[in-house]
Simulated assay, not measured.
Amino acid sequence: MRRVGLCVLGLLCLHSWVLGQEAAEVQPGVLVFCDDSAVEKAVSNALDKFNEKVVVGNKMALYQILSASKSENGSDSVYSVQFSSRKSDCPAGGDKPWTECDYLPDGPKEPCPCNATVSMTEAETETTDVHCQLADPVVPERAPCLGCPEVIDETSEDLRVPLTMSIAKFNSISNSSHLFTLNEVGHATRQVVAGFRYKLSFDMRKSTCSKAEHKDLHDLCVPNDEDVELANCNSTVDVAPWRYENQEANVECGPGPLPPMLFTRRRPPGWSPLRNVINFQQVDASSSSPTTSPPATTAATKEESSEEEDPAATNPAPTKAADPVADSPFHCPSKPWKEFSPVQPTATADPAATESASSLPPADGAFSDLDLVG
């Protein structure tokens, strides 16, 4: 039993020593220059290895070397390289090397990223791993949620009915001697629930119409600037006119203006939920007045005269652009292997055809929230 224990202990020590030797042989990688000849050789070998696996389509050709690092594993130099490639005009499976090919003019505009691990000695170069992302990654798109609350614009004509009902409900239960009128809409959503459910946040101002003289709001009930009083409300209104049922707004109100929100929008001048016909474009056009551009300043005149006196100001001497590769650390990314000239589209879209296509009805099988109303 004692001899067996000593043998096991000896094997464990030997195993630990071997692992320690292997760990000592592999040195951590250090960054190297992207335009180094050894790095270019490693990338070329990696592309040759990758093109051997391409059986359909076209071979890939180098575009740029993005980064490179080198580590030592005994007598081998291990290069980890990241580079980008483009489709070439050489068919897959052919004998023509990628270095004699050109880029495919109608290929993807963006190069595809690649990475590889290449082991090099003085005698041979071997790619142990190479991968290129030829296709764009699949990004899941979020489908529309039918029946979920949908944010709607605060100036939408659809808010006239729910806002009118909410303000009327507040005026009927408030203890104020005057009627309140709409001041600002903060937030509004609409949800399909066997009809439309509106959730509104808004505030109101005390108007000049007293309850003793006026039963309901009308166009002459304007905010009282001499006696300013505000109230804010959150309301829920279910609207379904085809059901011929008495509809009622549920409101929760408090004194003061609408609490601060991330996004608020004041109603346009002249907008009111009490009017039967509202044209927002006409309201905005009538409320805005044309402005005239200010005359040129004396500083601008002085600048023009100085330019006339100094011809070098209008025609400065051209400066040579700095080489981005030479100024970047480790010359990364490298210069493009070749210039890529994509095919430019020649046909322009017909505006009439685009307008007619946009006016077509939705395709069969397409749904919207209106399909849930019933």
Rank of each mutant, 00 (worst) to 15 (best):
A168W: 04
R243Y: 02
V237N: 05
I173A: 08
K206T: 02
S176P: 08
Q247V: 05
C253S: 05
R190V: 13
E245W: 06
C253K: 06
P255C: 04
I167G: 00
V222Q: 13
L220H: 12
E248Q: 12
T208C: 05
P260L: 03
Y198N: 05
F170D: 11
P257H: 03
W242K: 12
R205H: 08
G256P: 12
E245P: 01
F202M: 06
Y198H: 10
S210F: 10
Q191R: 14
V228A: 05
E248V: 14
S177I: 04
D227R: 08
N175C: 10
P260W: 02
N234D: 13
A212E: 15
R190G: 02
N224K: 06
F180A: 03
N246T: 14
D238K: 12
Q191D: 05
V192K: 09
H178R: 13
P260I: 00
D225F: 07
C253T: 06
P259C: 01
E213H: 12
L220V: 09
N246C: 02
E252G: 06
A194Q: 15
D219H: 11
N175A: 06
L258N: 05
D219M: 11
L217R: 08
S172R: 13
V239D: 11
L182Q: 07
S176L: 09
V251M: 07
Q191C: 03
V192Y: 10
T189D: 09
F202S: 02
L200N: 10
D203T: 06
R243K: 15
G254T: 11
P223I: 02
K199H: 10
C233A: 08
E229P: 00
L182H: 06
S176C: 02
N234Q: 14
E252H: 14
R190P: 00
S177Q: 14
N250I: 07
N250Q: 13
V185I: 15
N183L: 04
H218E: 13
N224Y: 00
N224F: 01
S235M: 06
A188W: 00
T236R: 11
G254I: 01
D216Y: 06
T181S: 12
Y244W: 11
I173R: 14
K169G: 01
D238S: 07
C233N: 05
N183R: 15
V192E: 14
H214M: 08
E213R: 14
K206R: 15
K211W: 08
N250R: 12
C209Y: 10
K206W: 04
K215M: 11
A212Q: 14
I167Q: 01
G186A: 04
H214E: 11
Q247M: 15
C233D: 08
F202T: 05
N171A: 04
T189F: 06
D225W: 03
V228S: 03
V222F: 05
W242T: 11
N246Q: 13
E213I: 05
K199Y: 04
A194W: 11
A188Y: 00
E248C: 01
T189L: 08
N232I: 00
P255S: 12
F180P: 03
L179I: 05
H214P: 03
L182W: 03
D238P: 02
V192Q: 12
P257W: 00
C253N: 09
M204W: 03
S174K: 09
